[in-house]
Design a protein around this nucleic acid. Sequence first.
DNA 1: CAAAAGCTGTACCAAAAATTTCAAACAAGC
DNA 2: GCTTGTTTGAAATTTTTGGTACAGCTTTTG
Lengths: 290, 290
Amino acid sequence: MKSDSSVPHVDPPSLAERIRLEMDSFTPSEKRAAHMLLSHYPFAGLDTVAEFASRAGISAPSVLRFVTRLGFSGFPEFQKHLREELEAQLLSPLAKASPSDKTHGAPALASFAESVIGNLRATVENIAPAEFDAVVELLSDQRRPIHFTGGRFTGALARYAESHLRIVRSHVDYIEGQPVLWRDRMIEIGKKDVIVAFDIRRYQEDVTALCEAGAKQGATVILLTDPWLSPIARVARHVLPAHIVAPSNWDSSAGLLLITEALVAAVTKRLWETAKPRMEAVERLRNEKP
Amino acid sequence: MKSDSSVPHVDPPSLAERIRLEMDSFTPSEKRAAHMLLSHYPFAGLDTVAEFASRAGISAPSVLRFVTRLGFSGFPEFQKHLREELEAQLLSPLAKASPSDKTHGAPALASFAESVIGNLRATVENIAPAEFDAVVELLSDQRRPIHFTGGRFTGALARYAESHLRIVRSHVDYIEGQPVLWRDRMIEIGKKDVIVAFDIRRYQEDVTALCEAGAKQGATVILLTDPWLSPIARVARHVLPAHIVAPSNWDSSAGLLLITEALVAAVTKRLWETAKPRMEAVERLRNEKP
DNA sequence: CAAAAGCTGTACCAAAAATTTCAAACAAGC
DNA sequence: GCTTGTTTGAAATTTTTGGTACAGCTTTTG
């Protein structure tokens, strides 16, 4: 693995981050301003001083002192900075890889991160594009019910996938690993169904059993696993392996999460016409909170 | 075409669209203003009238006439509209990108991965080492009960953390977000307890309520959030922000997962003396499967 | 090829916004 | 309990900004 000495494009720390770091040194009313700004970042700062002040429940001069303290010569300059930051963020959603030369962070965290990043790169390289596409295709077929499942640890990832995909399309659910909990649901599973299983080493027998039972009934099985492949691979139609070794007593699931998120992103895009109204509906329901 | 009365929730036509449609009816200098605005939409409109005019190569009054023609009562109102439009777009994962590009398969995965990697690097750089260490310290204190919680999507991460940590040490549980499910458990929470909350934008009020209730009872709150900070930050003792913006209609939780795994790794190491026997015991129980 | 209509910019004004001043309220220290 | 240093907001001040009137120019049209 090569260290990236090449790209020297550090993305400037967001003003929000700086505020967070300096939060302790603020006076009470400055803190109110800071919280107010962060809670609607950065839009709260784009209004007038008076508006900002009243929303934060402080006086205009306090707002001015706040922005001065942040190093700006005045409110307009502060606003200009916010606009530029916003524009930069919006125009290049792609992350600019920043060099991690300055290991000022907790060494533990930093080296752990580098290791995880190595896993992600290795994972991407070992995924067959056709396989990925085929899975996207399957998950985008609205006539096929999708069932997520996973083991002790990976179950959380299956839930994560399910919670997103269920908004994008219908007929998405999560099946608990223990046989007692899925035995009776099995009668519903047929040729149209798709089972997405997460399983890494210390492969869990109940998950394997679930997939085998499903496969026997004609369901299509998709497996997200480690490079040594869970036994589920035998009955799986598509296998997406992720590298999981980390400097820890535990394996890292970051690669699985990466694949999961990429799949969700791809499916969302693919089904955008129908997904958009669904997402909007969820949005609306969320806002009716009283 | 017009009168889309059929489609349920049509999102308001962006001002940009309207401008494009009415482009023909504009006077020459209005067209210059329009082109200028559309080419840097909507940021070009957030500056002052004078700035806008000079960039478009026209005079200030022409700009004023332009916005009046669009139906606004004045320049401030025009700007307000732009800001609101922008905010609506940015805050909702919807509309982040209409599915225009046909990037497919592996390229999608690869670029998604690069973006996520950028997030991880940025996340690591912005975590204060002291903060990370302090959290490890807290989670390693076996006398303190640990409660994990999270929102719709982040709840899965909280579960992931819980499933690992509960093996390393005792007194670890997961609290469901809905108030009805934790109201009664609150009486157990006291000064010794630690609440670890996962919450990213579209911050969830029930999770905030849980943390506030816990904090009021003297519990120590640890928050994993995005750089804009969940309102929970107000009551949190420690805050660990992760970068979450990805080329997707959804946010990426990879940074949160990274922090989570690094924490679990650190705590495991810290408590190794007691953790090892526990892990072995779990292993043994697992193998007695008949 | 005029006369009318429509555009556009200069100059000025009014309004609103940012900034500074200053005194009151508050907290910490002696 | 006084003093000193901070913090804060009301009000005054200054600067900036948006808005308007009007005259010159361009284009259209009879």
